[in-house]
């Protein structure tokens, strides 16, 4: 009975919501009544650039710090990778609420088109960051990147991200031209039980979880300090062993 009454109570309180009362008394006359004749419809270019305007308010020419988050650049990243991220945001597997809401009713086909558009977009990379790292940190970073750590079953970053670290088409993104804080934040997201970047574990989150904070900071700093090579392109073949490791990412995309 108690619950019954409290239910009624809650419900009654809620029903007050729809009867929004207005602050203002009734008006006498209009404020900006249209005077001119009917206006011509806005002309809208039939292009992808126009269709992705909602994206470019955040993802501009360069990475930048927004009011609520860090907005990474997306231009030039591998198409399959971008598509996977977009689908993950839409379906709640990668967490950033504004993008989830924005993409709620967008079909897979259209997401693919958006991914292709941004992937083909060529924008200049930012200059390397000025970061101060100790020689030990540099050595640690270079070792992980070039050789990995067999004792912990961590392959070298270049095995997947390409010799030039510009990624491997179509699913693995490049690691150069990314700001240090973005890289560090991604590692943080993978390590924190994948709340931000997917609950399911995959080849990348498995590695991230093994690295210490010191190591990820060293790697992020080293990567951000490298210039992006001229005419850099992603590698195009992933070794069968790495394909195997990254099955969930490579396969999931092939399903559709």
């Amino acid at each position: 009975m108690r619950q019954f009454i409290s239910l009624l109570f809650i419900a009654a309180a809620l029903s007050g919501v729809s009867g929004v009362s207005s602050v203002m008394a009734t008006a006498s006359d209009g404020i900006a009544s249209s005077s001119a004749g009917p206006a011509m419809p806005v002309t809208v270019p039939d292009t992808m650039a126009e269709r992705v305007k909602p994206c470019t308010v955040c993802h501009g020419q360069a990475d930048r710090v927004g009011r609520d988050a860090y907005y990474p650049r997306i231009a030039g990243k591998p198409e399959g990778y971008l598509f996977n991220q977009l689908r993950d945001f839409r379906d709640g597997r990668r967490y950033y609420r504004p993008m989830t809401l924005l993409l709620a009713n967008v079909s897979d086909e259209y997401l693919r088109e958006m991914a292709a558009y941004f992937s083909a977009l060529r924008q200049p990379y930012p200059p390397p960051e000025q970061v101060i790292s100790s020689p030990t940190e540099i050595r640690q970073a270079q070792k992980l990147i070039q050789q990995g750590d067999a004792t912990r079953d961590i392959p070298a970053c270049i095995e997947c991200h390409g010799k030039q670290l510009m990624g491997t088409a179509p699913f693995i993104p490049g690691l150069l031209g990314l700001p240090r804080i973005y890289i560090a934040a991604q590692f943080g997201a993978w390590k924190n039980g994948g709340v931000m970047r997917g609950q399911e574990s995959n080849c990348m989150s498995d590695i991230a979880r093994q690295l210490t904070i010191k190591e990820t900071n060293a790697v992020a700093a080293w990567l951000a300090a490298q210039p992006v090579p001229e005419n850099a392109e992603p590698a195009d073949v992933l070794s069968p062993e790495m394909v195997q490791r990254c099955g969930s990412i490579v396969q999931r995309s092939a399903d559709r």
Partner: peptide, 9 residues
Amino acid sequence: PYGMPPFAQ
């Protein structure tokens, strides 16, 4: 479809 940007940010 064409879209509308979020302005919350």
